[in-house]
């Protein structure tokens, strides 16, 4: 039976999703990228390989996320798409009547507005990190509360404390000050969730018409405190899809299926054993001094990027 693979390489997590011909999610894998996207993709493929009982015939591969070009080269992707489109596609598939997608990931957050099943507007944060998963992660760490518990703490709060939400620096210093005054951790955490939601709605969602159904996805959707804070602020029900944390990868898989490629460039599940390396050099051809990156497979350069003028562009132009 035909299967399709989606790979989403983000700054914080790398996700892989395998779907079948009927678009059922067969496997989904969530791995921390930890600054090493090549290793993360290979590790994901290794897990998939171990679960593959020879029944999967991969007919198409999609890559997305900020590391989509890298993932595309390593896995052999047929479709390389931006994460905004991928998230919208996945959301529509899970919740066909969706009109608003709130997505908060590790290092970016976005809002996607859809009408009649078509994306009509979107925004992605450009200015700050206040309001993304990494910041929550960092604060959980500081308060010594496991990130998985963070949301439940917020739900226990009866008197949320007001925290400044506009900037991560303001938020953190506010939290420290309130903590030293003796406020309870759950009240501070709830206050932080409210601040992040306020920041999101005033910054990314500014001027956008948020209509139901509202879908909340991305890693941060796991945080019950954030969901509650969104529901409070918007006065509407928020829906969290089943595969909320791998929606980008799911979207990439769906896009690969839609592309109906006849001959996939998929390199097979065995790529976890191939030696991929990346190195870089500084080009001195002009004063730009571009940092050019080589992606090598078994020592042979298969892709190269980072140059502004394309003079180092490689070889196999069908991939990137």
């Amino acid at each position: 039976m035909a299967h399709y693979l989606g790979v989403d390489v983000g700054s914080v997590s790398t996700n892989l999703v395998l779907i079948d011909e009927d678009e059922n999610v067969i496997e989904s894998i969530y791995i921390r990228t930890q600054g090493n996207p090549i290793r993360a993709v290979q590790e994901g493929m290794k897990i998939l390989a171990s679960r593959n009982k020879g029944a999967w015939e991969v007919k198409g591969v999609g890559a997305t996320g900020s590391g989509r070009n890298l993932a595309g080269v390593i896995v052999g992707a047929d479709v390389i798409k931006n994460e905004i489109t991928a998230h919208a596609v996945a959301s529509l598939r899970e919740v066909p009547d969706v009109q608003t997608v709130l997505e908060i990931g590790g290092q970016d957050s976005k809002i996607i507005i859809l009408r009649d099943g078509v994306v009509t507007d979107f925004a992605m944060n450009t200015v700050c990190a206040a309001g993304t998963g990494s910041f929550l992660d960092q604060q959980a760490n500081r308060l010594n509360i496991p990130i998985e518990e963070f949301g439940n703490y917020a739900l226990r709060s009866k008197n949320p404390v007001r925290i400044a939400g506009r900037c991560a620096v303001f938020a953190e210093s506010d939290m420290v000050h309130k903590q030293q005054l003796g406020h309870r951790p759950e009240d501070i955490i709830r206050g932080l969730c409210e601040a992040l939601v306020r920041n999101y709605l005033n910054n990314i969602a500014k001027g956008k018409e948020i209509r139901p159904r509202i879908v909340f996805q991305g890693g941060v959707a796991a945080n019950a405190g954030m969901k509650a804070a969104f529901e409070d602020a918007l006065g509407q029900e928020i829906y969290i899809p089943k595969h909320y944390n791998v929606m980008g990868a799911l979207g990439a898989a769906l896009l690969a299926k839609d592309a109906k490629v006849s001959n996939t460039s998929f390199k097979g599940f065995g790529i976890s054993d191939i030696n991929f390396t990346a190195d870089s050099f500084e080009c001195s051809g002009c004063p730009n001094h571009c940092e050019v990156v080589n992606i090598k497979m078994e020592g042979k350069v298969i892709a190269r990027w980072g140059d502004r003028c394309n003079k180092w562009k490689v070889v196999d132009s069908t991939v990137a």
Binding site: N82, I84, V118, V119, T120, F122, M124
Partner: peptide, 30 residues
């Protein structure tokens, strides 16, 4: 369709490319 882009000293193009691709997808769908 409308997209606004704020420019400063960033030299990484990926963020911009992501937005442009998504914007073009949106316009095509429309």
């Amino acid at each position: 369709g409308f997209l606004t882009i704020s420019l400063d000293e960033q030299t990484g193009k990926e963020g911009l490319r992501t937005r442009l691709e998504a914007f073009v997808d949106l316009l095509m769908a429309k």
